[in-house]
C-alpha cells in the first residue's frame, strides 16, 4: 500500500481506507458509498491541510509528478470531490432518491502517466 510523503503521514489512514484513487469515477463511487462519519472525517481532517498539500505538490508540473507523490494528489482530488456536497448537505451524497452514479458513464481523462485509454 502506497504511503504519503513524510510530512503527510497523519493522512495515511485515508490512503489505507482506499480514498487515494486515480480515476474520477472510482473516487466518486468511493464517496457516495461512504458513511457520513467517513466523509466528515475526510473533509474535516483535510480542509486545514489543503494549503500544505497544494504547496507541496506545486513543486511539480502535473506531467512530472513522481509516482510516490501521486497518492497525495489523488487524496486531494477525493477531498474536492467530497467537499461541495458535504458543505451543502453534510452528507456523502445527494439526498435520496439520488440518480444512481452507475448510470453516469465517465469518459476518463487520464493523467499523463496513465495509458491513453480513450
Amino acid at each position: 500500500m502506497a504511503s504519503l510523503p513524510d510530512e503527510f503521514t497523519d493522512l495515511d489512514r485515508f490512503v489505507t481506507a482506499g480514498w487515494a484513487l486515480p480515476g474520477s469515477a472510482e473516487r466518486w463511487k468511493r464517496r457516495v458509498t461512504s458513511s457520513t462519519e467517513e466523509v466528515k472525517d475526510l473533509y474535516e481532517t483535510l480542509l486545514p491541510r489543503m494549503d500544505a498539500i497544494m504547496t507541496y505538490l506545486d513543486r511539480y508540473l502535473l506531467a512530472d509528478l513522481p509516482e510516490t507523490d501521486r497518492p497525495l494528489l489523488y487524496l486531494a482530488l477525493a477531498f474536492m470531490d467530497v467537499a461541495p456536497t458535504w458543505e451543502v448537505f453534510q452528507a456523502a451524497d445527494l439526498p435520496e432518491p439520488a440518480f444512481e452514479i452507475e448510470r453516469m458513464h465517465m469518459v476518463e481523462r487520464p493523467f499523463p502517466w496513465e495509458e491513453r485509454a480513450w
Binding site: M50, M54, L57, D58, L62, M80, D81, T85, A98
Partner: peptide, 27 residues
C-alpha cells in the same frame, strides 16, 4: 487549462458540483 497542481485540484470541486446538479435534473 490548469497551470499548476493547485488549479488541477481545485477544478475537481467544480466538476463534482456540476455533476451533482446534473444528477438532480435527471433524478
Amino acid at each position: 487549462p490548469v497551470n499548476n497542481m493547485a488549479e488541477r485540484i481545485c477544478r475537481e470541486a467544480i466538476i463534482a458540483m456540476t455533476r451533482d446538479v446534473m444528477r438532480e435534473d435527471f433524478d
